[in-house]
Every structure is written in structure tokens, then in C-alpha cells.
Design a protein around this nucleic acid. Structure first.
Length: 338
DNA sequence: AACCGTCACAACCGCATGCGA
DNA sequence: CTCGCATGCGGTTGTGACGGT
């Protein structure tokens, strides 16, 4: 089967995203959702391939992403699940809300993998020492041998307690006998042996206390006090929005004090530094308005032709219109609420 | 100060999979 | 059933920051 290239190589930007690009993507996805990643960059005014946009959104710009250092609990979870699942990063990420598979994968390769290997070695050393101890004990039965492999007993909750959706998708180590999906590096003898030490995370203690200092950036994730706008729950991209309190969510634009007067009226604040500051502090309470001047008028949300009126986003509803269907390429995403 | 190696992270690439025409 | 498209996934690469020499 011939596959058309996902990226038209000509004229498309690659590499690091600029704040301006981020802003355009955020503005577009916030407003219209990701109805079609491939078409999206065209309408969002981005010289990127859809794949790049999707990656950027999923791995970096999504509102409920937890950024910053991994907590001890998260790392323990990753390590344990990696033992269980191997390199199935997306499955691991599913158990860690706010973390992306890419983030977990990177963290594994840069930090946890070494620690895990170190742990394996330590365990083997400990075992070797133990067996040596046994043997010598049987011979001498008196001289104590210091155990270099520090073994700290860590009681971990069973997988099912980590996340309530683990049933079915994950199996605990004890019940999992099929490691066929486990990657090669995991299926090494050492790793397989290490399976026997599933709860032995002694290596974690080799890190200094400061290592575990949590840079808790939860506040960055969306947590705006708000109320729901009827018709949708703010669910962009399959549940990206999750309010952390009992309040419900509506479009970020609905919170906006800004009223803009024309389709061509655009970026409220061209200060990208300010944009990033806003992103860090109260991102989802601040409006970002994309330059839609390049978008054909018929593709934009309804506006009153001939007037300067362009309806704020909270006047539209998600999923209420037959015109909006994420499986189609028709990109009139919302209908106006009369 | 300059160079170099390492680390962490963002982004890219190719393949797999699901789905609709 | 085949084909083509959209998206997901995991491996790999690129790059900037940082510390050591």
C-alpha cells in the first residue's frame, strides 16, 4: 500500500516551535478543536505538518499536562509498570494523568533506566552476596558478611490501586505470564531476573533527598474556577480538559473579558514573553485569539456578515451541530446558540 | 575564556493500526 | 477485499543548557 507522506516537505517548518506558532496552535485548537490534524495547520496559519502540530499539542500545549519533576510516586509507578509492560509508553502514560508518553519515555531513558539497571546490579550483588553468605555460612556458620546491596522494602499498592482503569488493560506482575510484548532490553536475563524483585526499589534510596524535591507545577494545569456552558464539557481532544475541582469547565474564551470586534482583529497581546508568562501562571484563564484572516470566511464560525460582530466563543456549542463532526473534514465546528 | 562531554528534553521519523469509502 | 487517510506509538535524533577541565 502506498502511503502518502504525512508531511509535505516543501515549505514546512521543522524544529523548535516558536511562541508565535504555539499561540496560533493553542488559539485554533482552543477555538475549533482538533477536527483534523492534517488540515489544521492550514487553517491555523501554521507552516507545519499536521503531525508536528499534533505532537506539539499532545506533548506540550495540552492544558492538563503536568510539567516539572516527576514525583517519587510517579517514578515508582513508571518503574513498576515498565517491568510489567515494557516499553509501552502510552500504556504507562495512561496510568499517570498529566504525563505524556514522550515525557515518560525521555525520563526513563535519561534517569530511570540507569537507576533500574543499577538496581538490577545491586540486586544481583545482593543475591550473590547472599548465596555466598549462605555457602560460607554452611562452612563457617559464624562470620557475618556485610550486605552491600542495600535492600529497602517498599510496599507498593497493587496495580489496581494506582488507577481505577487498570483493570483489563494491565495485569499485575503476578498474573502476567506473557512477556512477549516486552522490549528486548527488558527481556534480558538480568531484567527477567529482576522481575523477581518487583517491589525492590532500593536504588531509589540511593538518590539524595533533593532528588525527590517536587517541583509541583500542578497549578499550571488547568484549574480555572468556572461553570459549564451547556452543550459540551470543554472536552477538546477527547478529554483533555479536566477540572481538578468540582467546578465545571467551559471555553477559555468564555472567561475572556475581551470582546473583539472583527475577524481580522487579532492577537490581543503581541508580547510573546507575556504570552509565556500567562501560560505558566493562568494560561487557561487568558484568551488567545488566532489570526483567522487567512481562513476562508465560510470555514469560520458564523458571524454576522456586514457587521463587525464576531461572536465570542461561548456563544457556540460543541457537538451540537451536524456540521461538526471530528470524523469529517467539514470544519464549521460550531453552531451558534440562538 | 574556550572547549568538550553529558544530560534532559523537544521534535522528528517510520511503521502500525483503525476505519471508512 | 482493497485502498487510502488519519492517527497513535515507539525509536531515534537534534539541540540547548550545564558542568568539568
Amino acid at each position: 500500500m502506498v502511503r502518502t507522506p504525512s508531511c509535505d516537505k516543501s515549505g514546512l517548518r521543522k524544529g523548535t516551535w516558536t511562541p508565535e506558532e504555539d499561540m496560533k496552535l493553542i488559539a485554533y485548537v482552543t477555538r475549533y478543536g482538533c477536527w483534523n490534524w492534517r488540515q489544521l495547520p492550514k487553517f491555523a496559519g501554521l507552516a507545519r505538518c499536521g503531525k508536528s502540530c499534533r505532537l506539539r499539542w499532545m506533548n506540550y500545549l495540552r492544558p492538563n499536562l503536568k510539567r516539572g519533576n516527576f514525583t517519587k510516586e510517579e517514578e515508582e509507578c513508571i518503574i513498576r509498570m515498565h517491568k510489567d509492560l515494557g516499553n509501552r509508553w502510552s500504556a504507562i502514560a495512561a496510568e499517570l494523568p498529566g504525563r505524556t508518553d514522550n515525557e515518560i519515555k525521555n525520563h526513563w531513558h535519561t534517569t530511570l533506566k540507569k537507576s533500574s539497571q543499577q538496581s538490577t546490579l545491586t540486586n544481583e550483588e545482593a543475591r550473590a552476596s547472599k548465596s555466598k553468605d549462605k555457602r560460607s555460612k554452611s562452612v563457617r556458620d559464624s562470620v557475618p558478611i556485610p550486605n552491600n546491596g542495600v535492600t529497602v522494602s517498599v510496599t507498593l499498592p497493587p496495580t489496581s490501586q494506582i488507577s481505577d482503569n487498570s483493570s483489563g488493560s494491565l495485569s499485575t506482575l503476578s498474573s502476567s505470564s506473557d512477556f512477549s510484548s516486552i522490549s528486548s532490553d527488558h527481556s534480558t536475563a538480568a531484567s527477567m531476573e529482576n522481575l523477581a524483585f518487583e517491589n525492590d526499589l532500593s536504588f531509589l534510596d540511593s538518590f539524595s533527598e533533593s532528588f525527590w524535591t517536587e517541583l509541583n507545577l500542578d497549578n499550571i494545569s488547568y484549574n480555572a474556577p468556572c461553570e459549564v456552558v451547556s452543550g459540551h464539557s470543554g472536552d477538546i481532544n477527547n478529554g483533555s480538559f479536566q477540572s481538578t475541582d468540582s467546578s465545571q469547565i467551559h471555553d477559555s474564551f468564555a472567561l475572556s473579558p475581551h470582546q473583539y470586534s472583527s475577524r481580522q482583529s487579532v492577537i490581543v497581546d503581541n508580547d510573546f514573553g507575556g504570552f509565556l508568562d500567562a501560560y505558566a501562571d493562568n494560561f487557561w484563564t487568558q484568551p488567545y485569539i488566532a489570526d483567522m484572516s487567512h481562513v476562508p470566511s465560510e470555514l469560520l464560525a458564523p458571524s454576522v456578515i456586514g457587521s463587525e460582530y464576531f461572536a465570542p466563543i461561548n456563544e457556540y456549542q460543541w457537538g451540537q451541530s451536524d456540521l461538526y463532526n471530528e470524523n469529517t473534514s467539514i470544519n464549521v465546528p460550531r453552531e451558534k446558540v440562538i
